[in-house]
């Protein structure tokens, strides 16, 4: 995919505050988070052992994987206590609808 486009993902009410939910967009498994600081999206699988990040504990700016407690920055995907970063995608709201712009794979650096 060369041109980034925003894709409709869900309604605001579909994700409880402070939690995440997984979705498949454009063939890619994504976790969408609704934290106290806003909306974020990361690749759904933890780079460590593939844990479902959407099931993690979410705080303002980070998510903790439920399997081995690896922590990632929600906005950038930076690994906060792990080796590898996770890919971050951008999220925008229009009314009560949530859109995700998938990151272009080539531009992602670990």
């Amino acid at each position: 995919m060369s041109v980034a486009t925003s894709v409709y993902a869900c309604r605001v009410d579909d994700v409880p505050l402070g939690e995440g939910r997984a979705i498949t967009l454009d063939g890619r498994r994504i976790a969408i988070f609704r934290s106290g600081a806003g909306w974020f999206a990361l690749d759904a699988a933890c780079p460590h052992r593939g844990g479902p990040l959407a099931d993690g504990i979410v705080c303002d700016n980070a998510v903790i994987c439920p399997l081995h407690e690896r922590r990632y920055d929600l906005a950038s995907g930076t690994a906060l206590n792990a080796d590898d970063a996770v890919v971050a995608h951008s999220v925008r709201l229009r009314g009560d609808r949530v859109f995700v712009t998938l990151a272009v794979a080539e531009h992602v650096t670990a």
């Binding site: 486009t5 409880p16 939910r21 951008s90 859109f99």
Partner: peptide, 26 residues
């Protein structure tokens, strides 16, 4: 506790390209 307590989000078969272009301010 929440209507989606046990559910993932419904993934569209084909991505619906209705969103605004990246970078647009909403």
């Amino acid at each position: 506790y929440h209507p989606r307590q046990f559910d993932d989000l419904e993934s569209p078969e084909e991505p619906v390209l209705v969103g605004p272009p990246a970078g647009a301010q909403l």
